[in-house]
Amino acid sequence: MTNAAISVRGLQKSYKDLHVLRGVDFEVQKGSIFALLGSNGAGKTTVVRILSTLLKADAGTATVQGHDVSSAPLEVRQSISLTGQFAAVDEVLTGRENLVLVAKLRHLPDAGRIADDLLAKFRLTDAGGRKAGTYSGGMRRRLDIAMSLVGRPEVIYLDEPTTGLDPEARIEVWDVVKELANTGTTVLLTTQYLDEAEQLADRIAILHEGRIIANGTLADLKQLLPAAKVEYVEKQPTLEEIFLTLVGTGKENAA
């Protein structure tokens, strides 16, 4: 599709006898939020590492903003930013100093103005002069995402961005992610939290045992289950029910 910011076809990756990805296919449209949903070990982070040019696939192709991750890694890196599962902020530096440092590393002019603009965008202006080590979990994560946006990347990968956060901090991050999409940034979000995918994503792909077993809007995925049984009121299936029906309860994998 011509409007795809990310296109993945037949992606495979193994570590000796462990087959992590078994032919993954999906597309992410420009300016959208795409959630890659799966349990721990499903292969989500491996997909992100390949799309970030940090890892080579064994087979298949992937393009980001039209650039092949294998043959044009530099162009891909110039188009993307990655926020991993754990905040990468320097806790000794202030919030503003963290942002200034990233801007200078990217050789951008007027690093101070860039830092101040991002502090304002992420509601961190009042805390900008404090050491990042004093920030709450939600503030630290917001700063981490702000650092990822220095240089205005067209595509941002958020690899389980709310892991370990309390409910209030998670909502803060959700608001940030929604704002990113509203301003035209393409977001690839990996998560194991079903409500997160349900709240944020324009499209959801369920990754299970190295394969995409479902891909569509929330409404599309709801159609995969039988119509709601009407007794007194109609109960629509939740994303959790869809997920567990498609991948099983996981009890057989618990050992």
Results as ranks from 00 to 15, higher is better:
254 A>R: 14
170 R>A: 03
221 L>W: 10
105 L>I: 08
126 D>E: 14
109 P>Y: 00
138 G>P: 08
64 V>Y: 08
112 G>L: 07
230 V>R: 12
34 F>S: 06
9 R>K: 15
3 N>F: 01
177 V>W: 00
48 V>D: 02
155 V>L: 01
36 L>F: 12
250 G>S: 08
183 T>A: 00
216 G>N: 13
10 G>N: 13
88 A>E: 14
31 G>L: 02
151 G>Q: 11
135 Y>I: 02
194 L>P: 00
120 A>W: 01
207 L>E: 01
3 N>W: 03
108 L>Q: 12
202 D>A: 04
63 T>E: 13
192 Q>S: 02
125 T>D: 12
89 V>W: 04
83 T>A: 15
132 A>W: 09
145 I>W: 10
78 Q>S: 09
152 R>Y: 15
12 Q>T: 13
129 G>K: 15
39 S>N: 11
182 N>C: 06
30 K>F: 03
63 T>P: 01
235 K>Y: 10
50 I>R: 09
70 S>R: 14
3 N>C: 02
56 K>E: 15
173 V>T: 06
194 L>G: 05
6 I>E: 13
123 R>S: 14
73 P>A: 09
164 G>L: 11
143 L>P: 03
124 L>P: 10
121 K>T: 13
139 M>K: 05
147 M>G: 12
188 L>E: 08
108 L>S: 12
156 I>P: 05
174 W>V: 02
100 V>W: 00
51 L>G: 06
124 L>W: 02
43 G>P: 04
55 L>E: 15
243 F>Q: 10
239 L>H: 07
214 A>K: 04
153 P>A: 02
57 A>W: 08
8 V>R: 03
60 G>I: 13
180 L>E: 11
32 S>D: 08
87 A>V: 13
43 G>Q: 05
67 H>F: 15
14 S>M: 11
223 Q>G: 12
164 G>E: 06
166 D>S: 04
75 E>V: 13
184 G>Y: 11
8 V>N: 02
50 I>P: 02
67 H>Y: 15
165 L>G: 00
192 Q>R: 06
